[in-house]
Amino acid sequence: MLTFPRTLVAELRKTATLPGSLAALAVASVGPLGISLLNSMGVRNALRSGQPDLVAYTSAADAVFSAAPLGTVGAVVLGVIAVSSEYTANTPDAGGGRQITATLTATPSRLAVVAAKATVVALLVLATAAVTIPVCLGAANLVLGGLGTPADVGDTVARGVGAAVYWTLTALMVLAITVLTRNGIGPLIAGIVNSSLVSVSVLLSHVTPLAYYLPDLAGMRLFADDSIATFDGALDPIPGGLVMATWALGLLAISSVVFTRRDA
């Protein structure tokens, strides 16, 4: 483990310089900003025209946090490609090799590789969130001027941290799943569809309240309140976040064991 720092720096460099990673981080930052702006313009127009019942919420914070799923999409893309890029085969013309060979000959400790990748993805997602969410809040407040319903500062900060945690844990879960599948297509489609279009867990929650313990729904209240989505049985932020973190750690543990035992 003495060599872990260099593995970490190598993985940081490797992930941060992959063009796909930059695209993922762009989605996670520009996406929420764009939707936050659209949302807050909608709220501003409704309030100006004296029809606040046209919109589900009237605060800048809600306009921003209802755009958070796009940040999740970016986090999913990053978590997937950090691993799937290792398994992308070169063309047969170029020898058909995969980067995982270079990775594991340079760092034979599989556990170090998974730990470094998870740390790097978490750091990049958290850093993106730390810039994106305050910028979104500032932009939404600018658009709304003094029109919006003021939100409690402590509450907004907590939801901002919650959104960052939600993005990070989602990225770690898809990273772990991609280690198992060794191919990014499945985790990418499942992750994006589930976090942006139709959540399987939300559908299941109509059938059984146990669905609120599923990975994506458990942490929903980290950033979403009732004005964004009504979930009567949803877990509170802290217990929900802990359930989500347990899922992420569990999946990382399983993928580490499989990765360590499997032929590369």
């Binding site: 260099r6 993985e11 796909g20 070169n90 090799g97 995969r98 980067q99 340079a106």
Partner: peptide, 27 residues
Amino acid sequence: GSMLDGSGAHRSRTARNHLAWVARAGG
């Protein structure tokens, strides 16, 4: 030093970038 199946570098990287992270990982 080893080589299996060609370069082992991801398509979207430059040669220099590939070698740079390998050097980092190897100290």
